[in-house]
Amino acid sequence: GGHPVTTQMVETVQNLAPNLHPEQIRYSLENTGSVEETVERYLRGDEFSFPP
């Protein structure tokens, strides 16, 4: 991942996926670069990993 992630982006995802840890959200956003894509992954039931 190398996309810039803002606190705003993390908070937006958190509102839609409250049971995800912020670190999981941030890591996913760094890989996708997209709030929409991260939320899609969540709704699909994809696994969210923590940063290594």
Rank of each mutant, 00 (worst) to 15 (best):
G1Q: 13
N19W: 09
S49I: 14
P18Y: 07
R26C: 08
E36D: 11
G2S: 13
S28C: 07
Y27E: 04
P52L: 09
G1S: 13
S34P: 01
T7F: 12
V35W: 08
V13H: 01
Q14D: 00
E36Y: 11
V39C: 05
I25F: 00
E40P: 01
L43M: 12
D46P: 01
V5L: 06
R44S: 07
Y42W: 11
R44C: 05
G33S: 05
I25L: 01
E11N: 12
Y27V: 06
A17F: 15
E11A: 12
F48V: 02
G2K: 15
E11Y: 09
T32C: 06
D46C: 14
R44F: 04
E40D: 11
T6M: 07
V35P: 04
N19D: 14
N31L: 15
Q8M: 12
T38F: 03
I25A: 01
V5Q: 03
T32E: 03
E37C: 09
E36N: 10
P52A: 09
M9P: 01
M9N: 04
N31A: 14
S34Y: 01
M9R: 03
G33F: 07
V13S: 01
H3F: 14
P22L: 10
L43K: 10
Y27D: 02
R44E: 04
P52V: 08
E11V: 11
L16W: 10
P18M: 07
G1P: 12
P4N: 13
F50A: 03
A17G: 02
L16Q: 09
P51D: 05
V35R: 00
T7P: 14
Q8Y: 12
V10S: 02
P4K: 15
E47R: 09
T12A: 15
E47V: 14
Q14N: 06
E47I: 14
P51S: 05
Y27C: 05
L20R: 00
R41P: 02
A17P: 00
T32M: 04
G45M: 03
V39W: 09
F48Q: 00
G45L: 02
L29R: 00
P22F: 10
S34Q: 03
H21P: 03
L16E: 05
N19G: 13
P18F: 07
T32S: 07
N15A: 15
T7G: 09
G45V: 00
P4H: 14
T12F: 15
F48C: 03
E36Q: 13
G45K: 03
H21A: 10
T38Q: 00
L29M: 02
N15S: 15
L20K: 01
T7S: 13
Q24Y: 02
R26W: 11
L20C: 05
P51V: 05
V39P: 01
T6V: 06
N19L: 12
V35K: 00
L20Y: 02
M9V: 02
H21F: 07
V39T: 06
P51M: 06
T6W: 07
P52Q: 08
V35F: 04
N15W: 13
H3V: 10
Y27A: 06
T38V: 07
V10I: 15
Y27S: 03
F48T: 01
E30M: 13
H3Y: 15
N15D: 09
P22K: 10
F48R: 00
E40M: 15
H21Q: 09
E40H: 13
E30T: 09
Q14M: 14
L43P: 00
S49L: 15
E36S: 11
P51F: 06
Q8V: 11
Y42I: 05
P51R: 06
R44K: 08
R26N: 03
R26Y: 10
V5N: 04
E47F: 14
D46F: 12
Q14R: 13
Y27M: 07
T6Q: 05
P22A: 09
T32P: 01
E23N: 09
T38D: 02
V13A: 06
E47N: 12
V35H: 02
E36W: 14
P18R: 07
P18A: 07
S49G: 11
E11I: 13
Q8K: 12
V35C: 04
S49P: 15
N15C: 14
T38C: 05
V35Y: 03
E23M: 12
G2R: 15
T7Y: 12
E23I: 09
G33T: 04
E47W: 13
T7D: 15
E11Q: 13
P51H: 05
T12M: 15
G33H: 08
V5T: 06
P4C: 15
T12Q: 15
V5H: 04
E11D: 11
P51E: 04
G1T: 12
L16D: 03
H3G: 10
R26E: 05
T32I: 02
P18S: 07
N31F: 15
V35S: 02
G45N: 05
P22V: 13
L16A: 09
Y27N: 05
R44P: 00
I25D: 00
G45I: 00
R41Q: 10
E30I: 09
Q24F: 02
R44D: 04
N15E: 13
S49D: 14
L20I: 03
V13Y: 00
G45D: 03
Q14P: 01
G2H: 13
G45Y: 01
Q24M: 05
S28A: 10
S34T: 06
Y42R: 00
Y27K: 04
H3P: 09
M9Q: 08
E47G: 08
R26G: 02
E37M: 11
H21T: 15
T38S: 06
M9H: 04
L29C: 04
T12L: 15
F50M: 08
R26D: 02
L43Y: 10
T12C: 12
P18I: 08
T32N: 05
H21G: 06
S34E: 03
P52N: 08
G33D: 03
S28Q: 05
V10T: 05
G45C: 05
H21C: 11
G2D: 10
Q8F: 12
V10M: 14
G33M: 07
N15Y: 13
H3S: 10
V5G: 02
E23R: 08
D46L: 12
L43N: 10
Y42V: 03
E40N: 15
H21M: 09
D46A: 09
Q8S: 12
Q24N: 01
L29S: 02
Q24H: 02
R41N: 07
N19Q: 10
L43R: 11
E30C: 10
G1H: 13
S34D: 07
E47Y: 14
E36A: 12
N31V: 14
H21S: 14
N15H: 14
S28L: 05
E37F: 07
T12G: 06
A17N: 03
P4Y: 15
E40C: 15
Q14G: 07
G1R: 12
S28E: 04
T6Y: 06
P18K: 08
V5A: 05
T32W: 06
A17S: 04
F50E: 03
D46Q: 10
Q8T: 11
D46T: 07
T6A: 05
V13I: 08
F48L: 06
G2E: 10
G33W: 06
S34W: 02
R44V: 04
G33I: 02
M9K: 03
P4R: 15
L20H: 01
H21K: 10
L29P: 00
T12R: 15
L29F: 01
P51I: 05
L43H: 09
T32H: 04
S34V: 03
V5D: 03
V35N: 01
L16M: 11
V5S: 03
E36V: 10
S28T: 03
I25Q: 01
Y27W: 15
N19V: 06
